[in-house]
Amino acid sequence: MQIRQFTESDWPQVWEIVRSVVRAADTFTYDPAMTEREARATWLESPPGETVVALDGDEVLGTAKVGTNRPGPGAHVATASFMVAPVSRGRGVGTALLRYALEWARHNKYAGMQFNAVAESNRTAVDLYLREGFTIVGTVPGAFAHPTQGRVGLHIMYAHLSH
């Protein structure tokens, strides 16, 4: 598997992943009716952040975006988001993308990485983040309307990054 910066020719495959994840409405807080144009504006990160893809040959297995969590006095903390194609789950794609994002943040001298809204029902992601050094610093009860589980909490997760 190769992880590299997103290029324009990746968009059709990235859009398929984003569309499938967002329409499932079970992990991301994005509007399930998000249009392709809205998805591009949301997913494609501007510098100093970046959007990347995980590839197997020419096949996009997953994608991530990394950047600054908040501007100004909060600009020393990074954030990231990850999406893996449904057919590629369970193959280590999410782990590879997370490790890439953490290395990107360390390389760019961020003090930590914060995830603002991780659905507590997304056990695969929560368990991965915990394994890779994140802690749950708070949970907003009932803040995520899961399509089958009803209202579940949204975790705020943080990892301190040493340089």
Rank of each mutant, 00 (worst) to 15 (best):
A101S: 14
E38S: 05
V84D: 03
V77N: 05
Q5W: 00
V137Q: 05
L55K: 11
L161K: 02
A25T: 13
Q149H: 09
A159N: 08
D58V: 03
R40Q: 13
P141N: 13
Y129N: 01
E16G: 10
K109L: 10
Y158W: 14
L61Q: 15
D58E: 14
M83A: 07
G62Q: 09
V77P: 02
A41W: 11
A111I: 09
T42E: 15
R123F: 13
L161G: 02
I3Y: 05
G92R: 06
L98M: 14
G67F: 08
N108V: 08
W11C: 01
P86A: 14
G67L: 06
V77C: 04
I136W: 08
D56C: 03
T42R: 12
A78L: 05
G138D: 08
N122G: 01
P32N: 03
P48A: 09
F28M: 14
M83I: 02
A39C: 09
D26Q: 07
A54H: 15
A39Q: 09
V60I: 09
E45N: 02
S20H: 13
P12W: 15
E45F: 01
D10C: 01
A101Q: 06
Y100K: 10
V22F: 07
G142C: 01
W15P: 00
P47S: 15
P48T: 03
T139H: 00
T135H: 02
I136F: 07
A24D: 15
D58L: 01
S81Y: 13
V93F: 04
D26T: 10
R99F: 06
Q5T: 03
N108C: 05
R40A: 09
R91S: 00
V53I: 07
S9H: 14
A25E: 11
Q13C: 06
V18D: 03
P86L: 09
V52P: 10
E50R: 12
N116F: 06
A80W: 14
R123N: 10
Y30P: 00
G150R: 03
S46Q: 15
T124M: 03
D56N: 13
S20N: 12
G72V: 05
M113Y: 04
A25N: 15
A159S: 11
S88C: 13
T135F: 00
L44S: 00
S81V: 12
V22R: 12
N108I: 05
T124A: 12
P12D: 14
G72H: 12
A111S: 14
Q5R: 10
H160M: 01
A75N: 11
D56V: 06
L130N: 07
D56T: 08
V87N: 13
A96H: 10
G138L: 05
G90F: 08
H160S: 07
Y129P: 00
I17L: 04
R70H: 09
G133L: 04
Q114H: 11
D127Y: 03
L44F: 05
L44I: 14
F28P: 00
T7W: 08
G72L: 10
G57V: 02
V140E: 13
H163P: 02
A101W: 06
M113I: 14
I17E: 10
S9P: 00
V118Y: 13
E50G: 05
F134L: 07
A96V: 09
G142F: 04
A33M: 11
